[in-house]
Design a protein around this nucleic acid. Structure first.
Lengths: 250, 250
DNA sequence: TGTGTTTCTCAGGAAAATCACAGACTCTCG
DNA sequence: CGAGAGTCTGTGATTTTCCTGAGAAACACA
């Protein structure tokens, strides 16, 4: 199946769509209700159609009739082992890409083998930006193998490659840490839009982050040093509202 | 569901309507009667249909039969926790956007993930303009997938973008503070209409504002300096009645 | 285990925004 | 024309918000 990119989302964000224009379908499988709720909410906000299941049996059943374009699958389910679920899912939907959720300390080699087949994984606790980004990648790759350019975000003379994690401004390469990268990606996926600190925190930091809200200020400060250093600033503060990024010229 | 914008309100204000032309429905949930009263009045004034509830149980019940397009939900309810109410509401109305009310000093008590799902929140004490603006945003985004221009208000050569918080006159960018921005938004949402100082105070300032009424004069003065500076004035005083904004030519 | 990197807390200081106050101004009406 | 009510705006105190340096803790990797 081939997915297309359009810019018809509510905020003018680029959005993944199926060839017939219908929304992408994603199945979320996790036994913790708070996680499926959180993911459903966030993924729905991406414009996707979401179904969720709380165990392996339900997952297979739902997959059969929902025919999702991608699956988010917790490896730790009450009724059956993650690999078993995967096997049964594959019987239903041979080509659907799977994003695994695993505990941080879980053995990684088993996962490593699985992701070789074009799947991917993120560790709990995750950030929503991370899950969304990986899912977008999976879906894009499963459908259109030749659409590599879509993984590059561009705002003014600033570019960010979601695949290679490379960032550059005016042709000059810039090294960012993981958190800086995710923050910048979130900003660049919503150019010219004021994003509140709460929105940023909810989106870029893990769902269990319990710290001070001023990490956002701190990381904005880091980004500015690297992105705007000496140049015309692209990251702007809207006092009392939030931050936004936009091309330097304007 | 798709909402449409029309300009059929009594005062020529743009108004949100459901596809069949019926008014938008909003459920307000708060245990303080004064708050539900205040909100109901203000939201009704927007042309919306309002129901209110004083606790979680009532909220879920009302939601079931009222089928609102959006919910305003106090996080602090007598009978159950805000997140519990959210869960039950979601069971009834999976896609309805929620605007949370939270106490300012309940220091960001883990509103985790809420804004990521497309929901939003405001802190008490709020201003009515703020609540209305956020609700409009939520409703617009939940319903109409492809409408971006709606977030821009235009009066004459003056434009105000609610997404980017950008204001410009005759193409020239103008920086406004948060309060100035809200005041101008209120004026521009009611063009050619005289708004009394009391009305402005009630709408733009928080409901617990205890200061001098002449802040309004002060902020009108600020706005004039930035908006009308040297140009044909758009902000006019009606002595003894209030202020109004209208296109320069006329 | 040690070293360099990354993440985050804390706190001081800078900057900006808000607002009270008061005097200047202006309009209206007798 | 003059008085008074209503409006405008300069000044500065107070509060809020934001920025960033310093260092502690967690982590990654050899």
């Amino acid at each position: 199946m081939v997915f297309t990119m359009t810019t018809t989302s509510p905020q003018g964000r680029t959005e993944l769509l199926r060839p017939d224009g219908s929304p992408v379908r994603v199945l979320v499988v996790d036994d913790e209700l708070s996680i499926t709720e959180l993911l459903s909410m966030a993924l729905r906000y991406e414009g996707w159609q979401i179904r969720s299941a709380g165990d392996g049996t339900g997952a297979v059943q739902t997959a059969r009739e929902f025919r999702p374009d991608a699956v988010v699958l917790d490896m730790m389910l009450p009724d059956m082992d993650g690999l078993t679920v995967l096997g049964r899912l594959r019987r239903e939907l041979p080509d659907v890409p799977v994003l695994f959720l695993t505990a941080k300390d879980a053995v990684e080699d088993r996962i490593a083998g699985l992701t070789a087949g074009g799947d991917d994984y993120v560790t709990k606790p995750f950030s929503l930006e991370e899950v969304v980004a990986r899912l977008r990648g999976l879906i894009r790759r499963s459908g259109a193998a030749d659409r590599r350019s879509d993984s590059v975000l561009v705002v003014g003379d600033l570019t960010l490659d979601e695949d290679s994690h490379e960032v550059s401004r005016a042709g000059q390469n810039i090294h960012l840490t993981a958190t800086e990268f995710e923050l910048l990606r979130f900003l660049m996926r919503n150019p010219r839009r004021v994003l509140s600190k709460a929105q940023i925190l909810d989106r870029v930091w893990s769902y269990d982050f319990g710290g001070q809200a001023n990490v956002v200020e701190l990381y904005i400060s880091y980004l500015r040093r690297k992105i705007d250093a000496g140049r015309e600033p692209m990251i702007h503060t809207r006092r009392g509202a939030g931050y936004l990024i936009k091309p330097a010229a304007s």
